[in-house]
């Protein structure tokens, strides 16, 4: 049994997979030529939430970074839908 509540590296594999799939769907991303990264950041800046979810979309030739002001485990499909609007607005 792992006694240590590892707050620094929580096991978010399942939710990461889900979020990646939502990003792909709502952003309308192709099956290849694009990489999605899902990370959590502990931001020390004043005014920032303690933990943010950062979604990076690596397309050629550019990289787009989106932030959701809560930990990954609380990210829901409507959060992705919301940030997808910024992406679609910029790309259409």
């Amino acid at each position: 049994m792992n006694f240590f509540k590892n707050e620094f590296d929580p096991d978010n594999k399942e939710i990461t997979k889900k979020v990646k799939q939502w990003v792909k769907t709502y952003f309308g991303l192709p099956d290849s030529g694009c990489v999605i990264l899902v990370s959590e950041l502990k931001c020390a800046d004043e005014g920032c939430p303690d933990i943010e979810t950062v979604i990076s979309v690596l397309m050629q030739p550019e990289i787009k970074v989106y932030k959701i002001g809560k930990p990954l485990m609380y990210v829901r499909v409507h959060d992705i839908e919301e940030i997808s609007k910024q992406y679609l607005l910029y790309n259409n």
Binding site: M1, N2, F3, F4, N6, F8, D9, L41, K42
Partner: peptide
């Protein structure tokens, strides 16, 4: 840096 991995 700020990336950390730890366990029992």
């Amino acid at each position: 840096h700020m990336l950390f991995d730890g366990k029992a």
